[in-house]
Simulated scan of single mutants.
Amino acid sequence: MNKGLNIAFFGSSLVSAYWNGAATYYRGIIKTLHQQGHSITFYEPDVYERQANRDIPDPDYATVVVYQPEENALQQCLDEAGSADIIIKASGVGVFDRELEERIVEIRQDHQQIIFWDVDAPATLDRMINDKNDYFRRLVPEYDQVLTYGGGFPVEDAYKSLGARDCTSIYNAFDPDTHFPVSPKEEYVCDLAFLGNRLPDREKRVENFFIKVARVLPDKKFILGGSGWGDKDLPENVKYVGHVPTKDHNAFNCSARAILNISRDSMATYGFSPATRVFEAAGAGACIITDAWKGIGEFFEPDDEILVADCAEEVVEIMELLDEKGAREVGNAALMKALTKHTYDHRAQQLEEILQLKSIVA
């Protein structure tokens, strides 16, 4: 990609991780693009109380434009974005998603690249596959590129079968300046911790891989973080700590003997979809236990760098055998792999290569 391009990015939020699991993903990618000489304007709507629950002030690596969820405000943002070299529309903005996806196609100019960046590709694909009249089916071939933050070849092939010109997975990663080992924090000290918002296609798996395990191991301490779990029936040995801001992620990851990763149903079905939390926990040197999904070995070596469980019973078995020394060894190995393969520098380099190739072809 040529240096110094202007990029307009429409996403859920760059400044708030509140009900917005993609926040650190956006930050990592955009921060690195900025360091490589590009200018990014991030457009985000003022919805879901995200602005009232900011994790960070406006960063120096992007211009943040917060707009009201109104038609006139949206059009003003689109008018401004019309002069960009690249316009990116992420999935799940939260308001006017269809309008944005349609209008970006309509306003594109000959010199521009327009990109759809799907941060929940399995759900988007299932929607289109199950509904032959879904509006986005006709739009897929209009975008120069579809990017996803997970899914690997199953998702890429599915998008191409729906007419995508090209589709590439830009996986989650971590920013070593943000996620790194720290001293434990008393309020997060436990045997097993899980961090994730309460979502319909995740809840049953949390019940199985986390809550069920806690009931079987009453002598161990569990911590549940994330939004929406306040009225969930939890065993006495599970402490619910609510939304965990980004600034506390390192302490959360470093205070538990092990951190549990639980995929959403759709992510587990397609595979090749490691959550952002996996890389952030690895960057903090945490010992990670993950539910099983296809492609784990592409990112971390099972048994050595990450512990894999097919069911609640296997999580129980791991927790009964895992001591501090073993947890530390697995966490250190994960940290080394993350630093050498899974930083946002690695992902941004991949993105530049993709867009450079696209501009040459064009």
Rank of each mutant, 00 (worst) to 15 (best):
G285K: 00
G196K: 10
E305Y: 12
C254A: 12
V278K: 10
P245G: 07
Y344G: 02
D201I: 11
E236R: 06
V119L: 14
Q109Y: 03
H111I: 00
G163I: 05
A121W: 07
N261R: 13
V140S: 00
L199H: 10
A348F: 02
P69C: 11
I114Q: 01
V95E: 06
H38W: 06
A251F: 11
P176A: 08
Y344D: 01
V15C: 14
P59N: 12
Y171K: 09
N172Y: 14
T148C: 11
L234D: 02
E280K: 08
R205G: 09
S263E: 15
F10K: 04
A81H: 03
E324T: 09
G285A: 04
D97S: 02
C167A: 15
A8N: 04
P176E: 06
N6V: 02
G94K: 01
C311L: 11
D323Q: 12
F252M: 10
S273Y: 14
L125V: 06
Y143S: 01
Y67Q: 07
M1P: 04
I170F: 10
I114H: 00
I30N: 05
P235S: 06
P245W: 07
R98V: 04
V95H: 09
D131G: 06
A121F: 09
F210N: 01
I86H: 03
P200W: 14
I259E: 12
D345P: 00
V47I: 13
A282R: 04
D79L: 08
S16V: 06
L78E: 01
T32N: 04
A164E: 03
F279Q: 03
F194Q: 04
I114G: 02
V241R: 08
P302K: 15
S12V: 11
E44N: 08
V361G: 09
K212S: 10
A173Q: 09
F299N: 04
P184D: 00
N253S: 15
Y48Q: 08
Y159R: 01
I296W: 11
A282S: 15
A362Q: 14
D175L: 05
D248A: 09
A284C: 15
D134I: 02
W117Q: 03
D265V: 14
K221A: 09
